[in-house]
């Protein structure tokens, strides 16, 4: 493999690795989310340095150039990362829905009953008592 591409991939992987570690150190990235990034950068790094492994893998998957093997695995990890994010977004949306409903329930107003007020009059504005929701684990 051309030494230039090795320098680029090793350099690229190192930059990503250091960036992720730095972001975690500054608490801008949660440890939990750093795992996939670190694994991706690490695999690219190992395969760029250990030429024998890359060559073997290239023959195994039937690729022509070792560079395409690197690209393929890099791509695969990015896809997994995106799927992981879709799962997290779905989870966040479910949590948001529960919160939105909970806020609505907490501020719900009581109905104006016929014995409270004549029709057409403004209804009583005291909020209904806080509803007690069944305990549900948030997944």
């Amino acid at each position: 493999m051309d030494p230039r591409i090795r320098v680029i991939t090793i350099g690229g992987a190192l930059v990503v690795l250091l960036l992720v570690i730095e972001l975690v150190r500054r608490r801008k990235l949660k440890e939990e989310y750093s795992v996939l990034w670190v694994v991706t950068a690490f695999v690219v790094l190992v395969m760029s340095i250990w030429y024998g492994l890359l060559n073997g893998l290239t023959h195994l998957i039937g690729a022509v150039a070792p560079a395409s093997t690197l690209l393929f695995f890099g791509m695969l990890f990015v896809l997994i990362l995106l799927l992981h994010f879709s799962v997290r977004i779905s989870m966040l949306e479910r949590r948001l829905t529960k919160l939105v409903q909970e806020i609505g329930l907490m501020s719900a107003t009581a109905p104006a009953r016929p014995d409270d007020a004549a029709p057409g009059e403004a209804p009583a504005q005291e909020p209904a008592p806080l509803p007690r929701m069944p305990e549900q684990p948030v997944r």
Binding site: T97, V100, Q101, I103, G104, L105, S107, A108, T109, A110, P111, A112, A117, P119, A122, P123, A128
Partner: peptide
Amino acid sequence: ARAGAAVLRLPVNS
């Protein structure tokens, strides 16, 4: 509310 209903308002369109 003016028509006599209880009102539960969701803060964002959901």
